[in-house]
Design a protein around this nucleic acid. Structure first.
Lengths: 133, 133
DNA sequence: GTAGCTGCAAACTCTTTGCAACTCT
DNA sequence: AGAGTTGCAAAGAGTTTGCAGCTAC
């Protein structure tokens, strides 16, 4: 049983065939798939799955914080499994998304929030750049 | 003539009554209005304005970088005039958006991008927090 | 057994667009 | 005069939802 599946069970979700397929797709995706992407990949495994189920499942997973929903500047959502905390650098020429972590940044964000009188609960950072040649 | 109007003229846009109204709305808005918000406020000034024109104008202004389009986690876009560079802290309890700037952060982002082999072109940071009591 | 899940199709929300009329330069 | 702009309504994309049947627990 996958880690994702265990967490879903812990949250009281029934483990249906469709959900197992969707979890498997998310688990094995190295990128940041859109709903449509997840749907297509899921269909490769189980043809009968419907896109409504993909939407419903991703919404559930998002509420449980098992997945992160991104709204880049595209007009639709993209998802990724919430494994480790990291941020994204988007290559403006290729659209490629590079993940990174930075401890200094983490500390700075907590500090900025506290200076504004807030406890930091969540945050998002996206960098957009062009490759140096 | 407002600064925004001057920049539009410089970009070669024709200055119609509708555009003047939309620019005025943006200029005097202290928040981060949605298209619907801009439309409502514009209608208070000129009843005949259509939402299609608001969409078209905001898209133009976004392309010209006169305005910043935000996709917070809401399923629609919100806009603000691109005056000074800053970031947002969203109060998770009230939805209030607080703007801030931080020099240390600016330097760090350039550094992170360079370490990944990129020239930083643009970036977005959003903090989500709860007020300390 | 039953609460929860599914597929389907219709509905909904946000946004874009074709068109004929109009207007800024 | 002519290219650009507008309002309207229709269409498009992405997402949600009501419903009847099905399934995990």
């Amino acid at each position: 049983m996958s880690e994702l599946e265990t967490k879903c069970a812990a949250a009281g979700l029934k483990m249906t065939d469709q959900r197992r397929v969707i979890l498997q797709v998310l688990d094995t995706s190295e990128d940041h798939p859109s709903v449509e992407d997840v749907y297509e990949r899921a269909k490769d495994i189980d043809k009968s799955i419907s896109i409504a189920t993909v939407y419903r499942t991703l919404n559930l997973l998002d509420e449980l914080d098992l997945v992160i929903r991104h709204e880049f500047q595209e007009g639709y959502s993209r998802y990724e499994v919430n494994w480790d905390h990291h941020h994204h650098l988007v290559d403006l020429e290729t659209g490629e998304v590079i993940e990174f972590q930075n401890e200094e940044l983490e500390e700075l964000k907590v500090k900025i929030a506290r200076e504004l009188g807030y406890d930091l609960v969540d945050h998002r950072l996206e960098l957009y750049g062009k490759k140096i040649r």
